[in-house]
Design a protein around this nucleic acid. Structure first.
Lengths: 180, 180
DNA sequence: TAAATTAATGAACAATCGTTCAAAAGCAAA
DNA sequence: TTTGCTTTTGAACGATTGTTCATTAATTTA
């Protein structure tokens, strides 16, 4: 059921998806959904929270090495993680405004914590003189926006393999932070 | 009325905005709106088309000079144009799926033409050996995603002036294309 | 098999949706 | 003031929304 909701939300948008359409996708009547979720809002929130929590958990792993190596690990991880979950990513970016204020604050907190991972790498690298970045906050947001943008065009089986995409983006990021 | 629809669509999303709520914002009854638009869909499409057409028109102007200078002009133009129109930009990126197939195709065509502007600059620069870019298509999309990302956090009166933002992003773009 | 628990149905609810349209109101020209 | 035109109203339409709940069905426990 969460799978069905995920796909429909990503495809048509939260507001445009009815509980009945989710139920139809599952092969069940609308009333039955309420055995598994208290309401539609929780359904959206759970999907987002699950996604962001997994993102944070998986981002934990690649922690070792010098700043340059850590940055490379981050870039590769971000692209691959997001390319693997196009629907979750789409929802996490597009449906924020459909969250209740408390739910929104919680998701935003998770996002900020993820951004902090990258900013820490950049700050460490700047301190060590490996990166030439003036404002780590801006560079953090710029890199994440650039990497997440892959999801708007990348499709499996397209012109480029994911390996090639990763290589190209790493090349750009590396240059952009002045670690040529 | 278009102003009211614009703000509401950006704030709550196309599907979550009723014709009645737009009418209330204008100070009129819902039926009166149909003297100015045939339906809700056209309202969305007109807003998007107007935005994209203006984007293309204004992007026309900064055409002269060598590739590096043209790239700088493009970066500055993109950031300023988008920072000036947060609602339009938001809608143009978020409400594509709420367009009818024909309307969607038309907007996508305009977007592609805008991306072509940047790609032409990059190709020219690569040909002349000024830029070190392997795949101009990817670099185009990466740069645009990065620049458009400014809209997710930039607010007038924030920590940084728009001049500073432009300078920082130009610095990153310049380095990323290998024109250090 | 019988009893108990869990899950799904299908109808019903009040509310809201986009859109239409005859009637009323507003306004300009005569 | 009367005529003609444009704009707005307000009710109505059929459809759809999220959610509830008594009833039925299915499954597990005894």
């Amino acid at each position: 059921m969460r799978q069905a909701a995920l796909r429909l939300f990503a495809q048509r948008g939260y507001a445009a998806v009815s509980m009945r359409s989710i139920a139809a996708e599952v092969g069940v009547q609308a009333g039955a959904l309420y055995n598994y979720t208290p309401d539609k809002q929780s359904l959206l929130f759970d999907l987002m929270q699950g996604h962001m929590t997994e993102l944070l958990k998986e981002a934990q792993s690649g922690g070792g090495g010098d700043p340059l190596k850590r940055l490379q690990t981050f870039v590769e991880f971000h692209i691959r993680f997001h390319a693997d979950r196009p629907d979750e990513v789409f929802i996490a970016y597009m449906e924020l405004r459909n969250l209740s204020p408390e739910n929104f604050a919680h998701i935003e907190d998770l996002r900020r914590r993820y951004e902090d991972r990258l900013e820490t790498i950049l700050r460490d690298g700047a301190k060590q003189g490996v990166f030439a970045v003036e404002d780590t906050k801006i560079v953090t947001l710029a890199i994440i926006a650039m990497l997440t943008g892959v999801n708007t065009w990348y499709r499996t089986g397209g012109r480029l393999s994911l390996d090639q995409v990763v290589a190209q983006y790493w090349d750009m990021v590396r240059k952009a932070v002045g670690a040529g």
